[in-house]
């Protein structure tokens, strides 16, 4: 079970969180004309990387905040966690 540092609450066990997918995906703006390809990339196409991955988790049984977690998908090492609105360098 992973040990995830919620930027709001501190270290918590994985079973308090739910996984939310790739955090680098940006939703296209509303009312903007975009190609099918762009839309498909937003809705469906994911790389399923091996290695460092920026992903979303929600602290469901805690503060209910969506957070960003930088995690290695192969080793499960967590490098850093960020608040939803935090700039990631």
């Amino acid at each position: 079970m992973l040990h995830i540092k919620c930027p709001h609450c501190g270290m918590r066990s994985q079973n308090e969180f739910s996984y939310g997918g790739d955090a680098s995906v940006k939703r296209p703006e509303l009312n903007k004309e975009i190609s099918d390809e762009e839309w498909d990339n937003f809705v469906y196409n994911r790389k399923s990387l091996r290695g460092k991955h920026l992903e979303l988790w929600q602290h469901l049984s805690g503060c209910r905040q969506w957070i960003k977690v930088e995690r290695d998908t192969a080793t499960h090492e967590i490098f850093n966690t960020y608040k939803a609105d935090e700039e990631i360098s």
Binding site: S18, G20, R27, L56, Q58, L60, R64, Q65, W66, A84, D85
Partner: peptide
Amino acid sequence: LSHLEYYLQLVWP
């Protein structure tokens, strides 16, 4: 609820 929170916190803060 999670769905609404997702959009409010991440997409349209």
